[in-house]
Design a protein around this nucleic acid. Structure first.
Lengths: 252, 252
DNA sequence: CCATCATACTTGTCCGGCAAGTTGGTCGCG
DNA sequence: CGCGACCAACTTGCCGGACAAGTATGATGG
C-alpha cells in the first residue's frame, strides 16, 4: 500500500497524485482515524499542527484541514483555535449498538430489555395500523418460523424476520430502522459458515410458536393492547430463560 | 497593519468575518444537511458547484469543500470528480436515525412513538435499579428544567438531559446509547443560529414540570409500574400536542 | 448519421497569505 | 525580587488564485 516514495519537489508538477483509487483527504482521514482507534493517539493527546501533518504525510494543508474537519464532525477530534486538535474520549462517540454480540449473554439480555419496550410498542401500533399486505407478510413469516421448527433448523433468522415484519407494520420507519440496528444481536453476525460456531446456546423455546401465534393473532384482530401484552410476554420469557442460562452457567 | 481603509472590496480586507460564534464550515454543513433533511434537496439532486455554493453563501471555496467533505463522510453526498455532488438516498446512509429533524413534525411524531416504548421501559428499570448517584443526577436535571422554565429559556436541552439521566439509571447501556442516537431529534442540530429559522414550534407544555415530577417521584419511590405509566403519559401528551399541531397546520 | 475532437465546467490538490486566538517568555516598573 | 503588561511565536480559520484531471456537451468533419 506504500509506493509513493518519490516526492516530486517541482512546484506544480503533481497536484494530483498517482491515482490510488481514493482521495488523499479520505486516505488521511482514515489513517488518522486508524491511529486513534489503535490508541496510537490516546484521548487527550494533541495532534501535530496542520503544517506538521501536511509535511509528515506529504500533502497540502488543505487536505489536512478537510481530513481534520471530517474527524471533528465525527466527534473524534476537538479542535481549538490557536491551540490545536485534541483526541476526544472514545466513549463520547462510540457507535451505538456497535458491540452487539450473541456470544455474550449479558449483551443478549441487555438487548432483550430494550426490545421489550420497543417491540411491545411496535406490536401495539402494528395491530392498529397494519395494511393487508403487511398482515400477510407477518403471517407468512410466522409460517416460516413454524417450518424451521418442524425441519429442525435454527429459527434465529426467521424469528428475526417475523419481528421485523411486525415492526414494519407499525407504519413508523423508526421501528424497522431500530430492528436492523439490533439485527446482529439477534442473528449471528458471522454467517454460521461451517463449523457450528455455537453462539449463545439460544435456549430453545418450546412455546415459541404459540407465543408468536398470540402476537400475530392479536395483530390480526387489531387488538393493540393484547398485541403489546403478548409481545411483552414473549420477550420477557426469552429474558427469563437467558437470565437462567447466565446463572446456571453456559456449560451446563 | 492598517487595512481597514474601506474594508469593502479590497482583496484581503476581511478574511475572517464577524464572529458568528461557530465555524463557517460547521454552519454551512449544518445548513446543507438541513436542506437535505427537509427535502429541499431531494435524493439524486445535484448540488450547485463549489464556486456556486461559495458565492451563494458568501464563503470561500475552502469552506465549501470542507463542508462537503463532512457530508460526504456522513454518506449524504456522493461527489464525482468533474461532475458534481449528488444527494444520496437516505436509506443508503449507514447510520439509522440519520434523517432525524425537528423541522418535520412527522419526524418528531415518529420519534416520540418510538420513545414511548423505549423510555417507559427505561423508566421502569430505572425505578428498580437506579443508584443513589443516578437518583441525584435525575433530581438535578429535573431542577434544571424548572430553572429553564422560570427563566423563560428553552427547555429542549435540559429536557433531553433529564430523559438521558433516566435512561442511564436503567443500568443498561442500550438505553442511553439509543438516547444519544435520537438526540438530534429532540434538540436542534442547528443551534438556532439567530433570527428566523424557527424550528418546529415545540408546543409549550404547561404541565411539563408536573409530568416530569410524576416520573421522577415514581423513580424515587422505586415504583416501576408507576414510573413506566408516568413516562408513557408524559410522552403521549407530547405526541398528542404534536399531532394537533400537524392537523391545525404549522402556520398558526 | 456517426465518430471525433475542442471546449467549458467541475472536482482534487497545492500554494501563499492574512486575521484571530492562545501560549509563553521577556521586559519594565514598583 | 515580584508581578503585571507587552510582545513574539505558534496555531487554527479563512481567503483567493492556480493548475491537473475527469466529465459532458456541442461543433466539426467524414
Amino acid at each position: 500500500m506504500d509506493e509513493d516514495t518519490e516526492a516530486a519537489a517541482s512546484p506544480f508538477s503533481m497536484p494530483d497524485p498517482p491515482r490510488d483509487g481514493r482521495h488523499r483527504v479520505t486516505q488521511l482521514a482514515d489513517r488518522l482515524r486508524e491511529q486513534i482507534l489503535q490508541a496510537e493517539l490516546k484521548p487527550g493527546d494533541r495532534l501535530p499542527s496542520e503544517v506538521g501533518l501536511a509535511e509528515a504525510h506529504s500533502v497540502s494543508r488543505t487536505v489536512v484541514r478537510e481530513a481534520i474537519a471530517i474527524l471533528r464532525s465525527e466527534g473524534r477530534l476537538d479542535v481549538r483555535r490557536g491551540v490545536g486538535a485534541f483526541v476526544c474520549e472514545p466513549n463520547a462517540i462510540a457507535a451505538p449498538f456497535a458491540d452487539l454480540s450473541l456470544e455474550r449473554i449479558s449483551s443478549v439480555i441487555e438487548l432483550i430489555e430494550l426490545r421489550i419496550g420497543v417491540e411491545s410498542q411496535a406490536a401495539s401500533l402494528a395491530a392498529a395500523r397494519r395494511s393487508p399486505e403487511q398482515l400477510e407478510a407477518i403471517l407468512a413469516a410466522h409460517s416460516e418460523v413454524g417450518r424451521c421448527i418442524r425441519d429442525g433448523q435454527s429459527t434465529r433468522m426467521t424469528d428475526y424476520t417475523l419481528h421485523l415484519r411486525i415492526a414494519e407494520a407499525a407504519q413508523n420507519r423508526r421501528f424497522p430502522e431500530l430492528m436492523t440496528l439490533v439485527k446482529i444481536g439477534m442473528v449471528s453476525s458471522v454467517p454460521v459458515t461451517d463449523r457450528d460456531r455455537q453462539n449463545a446456546p439460544m435456549p430453545a423455546n418450546e412455546n415459541l410458536q404459540s407465543e408468536h401465534a398470540a402476537i400475530v393473532n392479536a395483530i390480526l384482530l387489531s387488538d393493540s393492547d393484547k398485541a403489546a401484552t403478548a409481545m411483552r410476554t414473549h420477550l420477557e420469557g426469552s429474558l427469563r430463560r437467558y437470565k437462567e442460562l447466565l446463572v446456571n452457567g453456559v456449560s451446563g
